[in-house]
Amino acid sequence: MSATVLTRARRRFGRMLIPLCGVLGFAFLYVPIFFLILFSFNDHIIPSLPFRGFTLEWYRELSYDFVMHDALYNSLFIAFWTTLISTTLGTLAAFPLVRRSYRLKGASQLLVLLPMIIPHFLMGVALLIFFSFLGVPLSRVTIILGHVVFTMPFAIMVVSARLHGFDRTLELAAADLGANPRRTFFHVVLPIIMPGIAGAALLVFALSMDEFLITYFVSGQKGTITMYIWSLLKDGIAPRVNALASALLLASFVLLLIGNWLSSRTSGVEARR
């Protein structure tokens, strides 16, 4: 009898252990972010306990920080072009990667996978040496090139996921009804994979805004927002950084919501199925 009680106790412990890991996991992920936001409103020069009262002072200070504005503008500029290039070229590449089999397919898949998992500093070092070898001065263009290399694989991955679930009989039907390939592409294929493309664009944008190490090597004089944050962090903690972090967090949250909304909207063709 005591054995069954023991087993039951053990089982209850086991059943408790898994949810405990779940709760701890989310606490682990979100507690730092929670305090980050909380202390951006703290009326004290050090963002730590005790909480001395609510203030918007640090946000106001941020709005006067023109170096930060400049860096933010650079980052948006770079992220915009990176998104445009990576998403377009990634979408073009996703079609043959998903739909065709050909010689050297393994090699081209490796070309997609490697830049995704290789440590960024290796790419940064290689690109820095490459640009210095060619005599190309470091600028926003070199940062964009560096960002395209590592974000394009992510764009390919997201668009491919959408293409995998694509019902190709729809294309046959369009052709059957007399649409030429061009018409079929723009009126049937593109609307269906659009949520995938939008998702890819959003992911690329976020990755580019957040990139640190490649930028660190190839940025030269033009600082991005991550370079600016890096310069702040070397001086230790300050409530202004909390405010900046909270503002950026809100921006990426809004971006993600838009992305979710876009991908939850199904195209007309799909809705009728």
Binding site: A206, D210, A245
Partner: peptide, 10 residues
């Protein structure tokens, strides 16, 4: 989806 640098800062 938050900057890695800022999470390290947190």
């Amino acid at each position: 989806w938050t900057s890695g640098l800022l999470r390290a800062y947190a």
